[in-house]
Design a protein around this nucleic acid. Structure first.
Length: 732
RNA sequence: GCUAGCGUAGCUCAAUUGGCAGAGCUCCGGUUUUGUAAACCGGAGGUUGUGGGUUCGAGUCCCACCGCUAGCUCCA
């Protein structure tokens, strides 16, 4: 006999081989049918496995997971991924299985398959899945030792699974498989009792991916899908997705005339239209005030800087491909630069030129004015590179700046610094340019030219903690000012295995532990992610989600012991000796582009009064009241409001509708009655008609609301709660 | 950059197997003089992303390029 304890405290005596499903059946038949999996001491497991083999705890702490539990939905989706894979294997020849995990409300399965799967193929895949679901076969778990597992996967022709057992699962003695009819898959589980429990599903999209997420590995096809226990839930989720898309900043940005991106200007280069620019300027004014209060000093620096400086900082060598190519004062520069890269045996992106190609390169360079006469075309690669480098070094080479820090570093260096001057806080809305991959560009959220609300703090090691704490508070303060409370703090540290970071182990450890301790002391919950650090130092990133649930980094605070080292920065200490300062990089908004993009979605375009590009619109009832409307608008404008008067020859209903669709916070309807008493009829975008009040009362109300920066959201983002299920189901 | 999809008026979309490029909104002109989410009439607006090809004939089929979207990879 085995004792089982249910969440309500009831303890049951059961047969040794009893399963969760048996227990459910013992309570009621309805519960048996609804039972999807079991939770034993926090572990989600198959409902069909004997409880005795799942835990040593007695009595067994059992929680039945039914179709109502979030963890159960994850199990459902994972099983549905298996069903989809089974359908694909029935429809296509030679399908290699990779991974098929659950991601939020969706799941995917990666296939190694030569025939491209197209959207047109979804109906036939779904039809096959339906057939499998109708068959309602059970998911049967079995385990094998390593050798047998490898043999089985080989027999099944699943090479990727063999590779995974040999590499990723090297420390597993025993491996589990799930069988569903003819379909057998290496899988950790858990799964549904049987396929018939899938009541609603949909194949969503197909995309490319790579084996184990490495772009140098073989390309795979990733099929996305979703599943629910109930058709209504599926429909509701799809509708929610459609709703969420309506707050897309790209759609609202063009409907509300906030910004545009023209291919003729260039991909990823945004054009701020007057209304978007107003929002941005308001935010800039807001943060500028805060910075002055916090002891920052504004500075300005140019958009380009010499390549040599970026070589010192490390940007140029480390991030060459994501920068725009250097600008040369000399026409031959670009060509010579390419040639040098092509001769570099370590540069995998450019293959070495053939003799013919080199001849052509030399001819072209000569035409452009390169001194080619005594060029050692038949000499060694080293000779050629030396010669080209020598020439290149004499040229003026500039980089469109990818970051502001080197410029600010030069400002720090321009003046001898004493410990008494520190911390030095240099702030600039610095525009930077990065050559992001074309597939990465996304509206305002990922662009090639953007402006950071950047600042660099230079302080003594003693001041680091205090300064770091204050910058974190600043980020929280600005997010709070716009009511953005839906963020996550990520401590981005280096990946010790990677070579893309500069500086010594000790400096990194020092920086990372400082960060960790400040975050903990400030009581800010954070998740630590290795490998996400900047190349010069770790950072605390403030992450938010867009309307589709994708996460973006906004504010960031970065700790840097490396650039001061590389640029040999100094200050004179109390001991009259030179010391090395520590740098803090920080940007509370991150970039104006991304911040405004996220903000548009956050407010669904309905900006609070202090941010709205057009704050108030005066709507005369007819032309008879035009003069009074203009008068009201002018008086509001004198108090600093962004206000217009709608003098169209239209009915007031039409004017209201238009203002409402343009998400203007306040409408003032004025007719002869109002004109007579110097009054306005106030209509609020959110609350509707507020009735007639005197001009002064209305003005007072607007001033209070604006100056308090009151934030009211019409609708809360719905995508924020879509898709966070963390149950441990999925691939090994 | 990779995989898949998409590109018709400023916007949202239509155009049968390849057979005369169309509608609503916006915009412009006029009528209307209006009380809290759409008054009425008329007009303009296009080398169907660009370039090539197949065809008697291409928005529709093929190729290349440009751009957009989702995902992947990347992200200082």
């Amino acid at each position: 006999m085995i004792q089982v304890q249910l969440p309500d405290g009831t303890v049951l005596d059961k047969d040794d081989h009893s399963t969760a499903l048996d227990i459910a059946a013992g309570i009621s038949d309805g519960l048996r049918r609804a039972t999807v999996a079991a939770d034993i001491d926090g572990q989600v497991v198959d409902a069909t496995r004997p409880l005795a083999e799942l835990t040593d705890l007695r009595p067994v702490p059992l929680k039945l997971l039914t179709t109502r539990d979030a963890e159960a939905a994850a199990v459902l989706r994972h099983s549905c991924a298996h069903i989809m894979a089974r359908a694909v294997m029935r429809l296509y020849e030679g399908v290699g299985l990779a991974f098929g995990p659950v991601r939020g409300n969706t799941f995917y399965y990666d296939f190694d398959l030569d025939t491209p799967i197209r959207e047109d193929d979804f109906p036939k895949i779904e039809a096959e899945m339906k057939r499998i679901i109708r068959e309602a076969e059970p998911f049967e778990r079995f385990t094998m030792n390593r050798a047998d597992s490898i043999q089985l996967c080989q027999d099944l022709g699943q090479e990727l699974k063999v590779e995974h057992i040999e590499t990723g699962l090297a420390d597993h003695e025993e491996l589990s498989f799930y069988r569903q009819g003819e379909f057998v898959d290496l899988c950790r589980g858990p799964h549904l009792p049987h396929a018939g429990m899938v009541r609603a599903f949909k194949v969503l999209s197909v995309a490319g991916s790579h084996w184990k997420g490495d772009a140098s590995n073989r390309p795979l096809q990733r099929l996305y899908g979703t599943a629910f226990f109930d058709k209504k839930e599926l429909r509701a989720w799809l509708e929610q997705l459609e709703e969420a898309k309506k707050r897309d900043h790209r759609v609202l940005g063009s409907r509300l005339k906030l910004f545009t991106i023209s291919p003729e200007v260039g991909q990823g280069l945004c054009l701020w239209l007057p209304k978007g620019a107003t929002i941005r300027a308001t935010l800039e004014d807001f943060i500028r005030d805060e910075l002055l209060r916090s002891g920052y000093t504004p500075v300005y620096s140019p958009q380009i800087g010499r390549v040599e400086m970026y070589e010192t900082s490390g940007h140029f060598p480390y991030y060459r491909d994501s920068q725009f190519a250097p600008l040369f004062g000399h026409s031959a520069g670009q060509l010579v630069d390419y040639w040098i890269r092509a001769l570099d045996p370590d540069d995998a992106d450019v293959s070495p030129p053939t003799a013919d190609q080199e001849q052509s390169l030399l001819e072209a360079a000569r035409v452009m004015g390169f001194p080619a006469d005594d060029f050692p075309l038949n000499g060694s690669t080293d000779d050629k590179r030396r010669r080209l480098r020598e020439w290149e070094r004499q040229q003026e080479r500039y980089l469109l700046r990818p970051m502001n820090c080197p410029h600010h570093v030069q400002m720090y260096r321009a003046i001898p610094r004493s410990y008494r001057d520190l911390p030095v806080r240099l702030a600039e809305f610095g525009t930077v340019y990065r050559h992001e991959q074309s597939g990465e560009l996304n509206g305002l959220l990922r662009v090639r030219g953007f402006t950071q609300d950047d600042a660099h703090l230079f302080c003594t090691p003693d001041q680091v903690e205090e300064e770091f704490r204050k910058t974190l508070q600043l980020v929280q303060y600005v997010l709070d000012a716009v009511g953005m409370d839906d963020y996550r703090v990520q401590l981005s540290t280096r990946d010790p295995a990677s070579d893309k970071y500069v500086g010594s182990e000790e400096l990194w450890e020092q920086a990372e532990s400082t960060l960790r301790s400040v975050l903990s002391k400030a009581d800010i919950p954070f998740t630590e992610v290795a490998g996400e650090a900047a190349f010069y130092g770790p950072k605390a990133d403030f992450m938010v989600k867009d309307c589709l649930g994708r996460e973006w980094q906004l504010g960031t605070v970065q700790l840097d012991y490396n650039l001061p080292e590389r640029f040999e920065l100094e200050y004179i200490g109390p001991d009259n000796r030179p010391h090395r300062p520590v740098m803090i990089h920080r940007a509370p908004f991150g970039s104006m582009e991304r911040f405004v993009g996220v903000l548009i979605e956050h407010f669904a375009g309905a900006f609070p009064l202090w941010l709205a590009p057009e704050q108030i619109r005066v709507l005369p009832l007819s032309e008879k009241s035009d003069a009074y409307a203009v008068d009201v608008a002018e008086r509001l404008q004198k108090h600093g409001f962004r206000v217009t008067a709608d003098l169209q020859s239209a009915r007031v209903q039409a004017k209201i509708r238009e203002a409402q669709l343009e998400l203007i916070p306040y409408m003032l309807i004025v007719g002869p009655r109002e004109a007579e008493q110097n009054a306005v009829s106030v209509r609020c975008r959110i609350d509707g008609d507020l009735g007639v009040m005197s001009f002064e009362d209305a003005l007072d109300r607007f001033i209070k609301e604006r100056d308090a920066r009151t934030v009211r959201q019409i609708v809360k983002s719905t995508m924020a709660d879509v898709g966070e299920t963390t149950a441990s189901v999925g691939e090994y």
